[in-house]
Design a protein around this nucleic acid. Sequence first.
RNA 1: CUGUGGUGAAG
Length: 235
Amino acid sequence: VIANSLVDMLAKCGMLSEAREVVKGLPVQDVVSWNSLIAGYIKHELFDEALRCFEQMPVIGLTPDVFTFASIIKACGSLGASCKGQEIHADIARNGPLETDMVLGTSLIGMYATFGMLKEAQEVFDELPGWDMATLNALLAGYSQSGKDELVVNTFVKLIDENYKPDLLTFKILLDACIHMGLLDEGQRYFETMNTTIATNFTVEHYTCLIDLFGRAGHLHRAVLLIMEMPFHAN
RNA sequence: CUGUGGUGAAG
């Protein structure tokens, strides 16, 4: 247990060969040691190394668990490995109970979103027993990435109705969609509504996001106006 | 309450 914490720490710091050595030297390697290692590889974007570990697990008699799958599905997404990802998803589906895990579900949604496979993403979403903001953001990001800007906005409205509390990423996706559609006014209106109605404490980050989008969309004037309006020091 | 997992693109 203590050794696993060490592995995790080393892996998080990017000392991956050291982490691997520690795992190798363990008298009993369990699934947690390997999960930590895999998560480390992914954190440092060594996705194929993560996949290699994943394939190695059964060989040494370890059964991947829900943690392993959540990580490895993310790796498949980052690698653009859609076949591998779907293959692993099929294994997960065969495993019944895993399918209802929200974190794993979110990871799957994110993966399908990056592949532009909205139908699959939606299916995973619909099967889940519950959703949190990460799940919803993954789905919204998928819509956005596939150019379904109206769907982003509609879903956002629905989500507000259902009392979800959007976070910074939600705003980025929403505002991005608005501006993509050329709906600058709507975007800013949502922004202002959110700023006042919804009990969200807007930070300088939120403003930065909208300002950035205005600037990028070629509306420097509006960006400057916003900077002057915001209740912070410009930084 | 022994340790490990999830949320887009751009910059």
